[in-house]
Design a protein around this nucleic acid. Structure first.
Ligand SMILES: NC(=O)c1ccc[n+]([C@@H]2O[C@H](COP(=O)([O-])OP(=O)(O)OC[C@H]3O[C@@H](n4cnc5c(N)ncnc54)[C@H](O)[C@@H]3O)[C@@H](O)[C@H]2O)c1
Ligand SMILES: NC(=O)c1ccc[n+]([C@@H]2O[C@H](COP(=O)([O-])OP(=O)(O)OC[C@H]3O[C@@H](n4cnc5c(N)ncnc54)[C@H](O)[C@@H]3O)[C@@H](O)[C@H]2O)c1
Lengths: 226, 226
DNA sequence: TACTTAATGTGAAAAAATTCACAAAAACAC
DNA sequence: GTGTTTTTGTGAATTTTTTCACATTAAGTA
């Protein structure tokens, strides 16, 4: 039986995002070029991995000269279709939605939240500059702005309904913050962000690490018994 | 050269979180047991994968009888050390920090934000019930509550400094929302959550999908030319 | 110009993750 | 109780990802 999944995000693409973040930082620090070694150090991967990833996306550098940071960044922007503007909508203007709507980095990266929606659009209107609409205008506005990607920040219980409405209105990609797995047609991409899981996975590793450290201490006490 | 990374989160563990979310939902829908097939459908993976993952974490079911949902959930809680309470701190009470501090699901899952910190602790004090302290009390409170895990929601520019302070105070795991890669000693786990990247990766896939669909249409127009 | 050095880029090898395939166990049927 | 069916659990096979290794290229040097 084949996999059912459709939300898989390739490791190499994930790392391209990572490299870009590193490059931006290195650039800010005044650097103009990098070697795979430098970037690898910065990103926490191996230099081979960096070169292999670049190879996959057909990014070329200069033999012995490394990579020009600006050129790299530009190539990456192309990968992300960054030249174009992307219109986004956000559904659910509660605590999280409000924070996201104020997040300026989205715009810095050409992702423009053109409208937000809430079942109760009057609640947050005063606290934000982005328009807040009722759900009845979802389809109209998504189509007007040719929106293809949406953020869901409504309670768990409403998420699937909102998702269905978005898909009906023509949305093809969703970042979902509600802790449910959304059901969508196969041509609609969903990226679930589950902050509880992120926190819990850290707790998991911390406890394991502590356990391992504890065991090491025991070993130190009793010596190597192998 | 070996990898430098230390923030890798194993796929199988990620999926255990996924399975738990699915199981909770299935339970809510009134189900009491599942087969690997059912859970796989729900989680969007293959049944083999489910069984293999369970095998890795030494979770056993009943031949021909599938798995009892409650037992599964309990075993998973053990994996996550869920029986214990986990004290967490949150640094940075801006837009995102405020939303996170109000997120009730953390507590539902035994993760208790015992205190929050901000360079300007008076700003948000009125808007939240969790105490907001100045950075001068970080070490004291972390040690008093035996906090091992922290959330960073401060601006990019301050994140490394805050991270260093947390590590000095004894924190062993960090969920970082600032879009920078933090440098930590090897025994400190960092999980970076980059919401821009999550959004951009969806945009990437949507555009590729659209491109592929476009190509398919061209193929349909011209027939199979192989 | 020729020689040395330092980096990339990519097939090949190794490792890791996933899928296959089937023996073993349990439930059910008669 | 015997036979059939269904599902688990896990080694083996396969696929994917990562790492290795080195030929290739460019820069520096004398
Ligand atoms: N607050 C956080 O920090 C946080 C963190 C991670 C995940 N989440 C998740 O994000 C979602 C929102 O969390 P929140 O804390 O902002 O909750 P919230 O209750 O503050 O906000 C939810 C908003 O959605 C609106 N809403 C409800 N039903 C709707 C519908 N059918 N259509 C349109 N809008 C609707 C509500 O009016 C409200 O404004 C939840 O699923 C939550 O689990 C929140
Ligand atoms: N707002 C969002 O939705 C969002 C989304 C993704 C990521 N982020 C990231 O999360 C971080 C916070 O975002 P925000 O929108 O909440 O920003 P914000 O400016 O609203 O909040 C930052 C808070 O950190 C505090 N702070 C600044 N320096 C500090 C220091 N040295 N020690 C302690 N506290 C300090 C400030 O007083 C402020 O309250 C940023 O790094 C941002 O990139 C935010």
């Amino acid at each position: 039986m084949k996999k059912f999944t459709k939300t898989l995000i390739k490791n190499s693409l994930r790392r391209i995002f990572l490299y870009r973040a590193c490059l931006n930082r290195l650039k800010m620090m005044g650097m103009e070029k990098v070697f795979s070694y430098t970037l690898a150090m910065e990103a926490g991967v191996s230099p081979d991995q960096v070169r292999k990833d670049f190879s996959e996306f057909n990014i070329k550098g200069n033999k012995r000269g490394g990579y020009n940071i600006d050129e790299l960044l530009e190539k990456m922007e192309n990968i992300f279709y960054k030249n174009r503007e992307h219109n986004i909508v956000l559904v659910g203007m509660g605590n999280l939605g409000l924070a996201l709507s104020k997040y300026s980095r989205f715009l810095q990266r050409n992702m423009n939240i053109v409208a937000t929606f809430d079942i109760d659009p009057f609640k947050q209107k005063a606290r934000t500059e982005i328009p807040v609409y009722g759900m009845d205008r979802l389809k109209e506005i998504i189509q007007r702005f040719k929106v293809k990607v949406a953020i869901i920040a409504v309670p768990e219980i409403s998420a699937q309904q909102v998702c269905d409405d978005l898909v009906k209105a023509g949305v093809k990609g969703i970042v979902n913050f509600a802790p449910v797995l959304l059901k969508t047609p196969p041509n609609v991409i969903v990226n679930n962000v589950n902050l509880c899981d992120e926190l819990e996975s850290v707790i998991y590793y911390v406890h394991h690490q502590l356990k391992i450290e504890g065991l090491k201490n025991i070993e130190l006490l009793y010596g190597d018994m192998k």
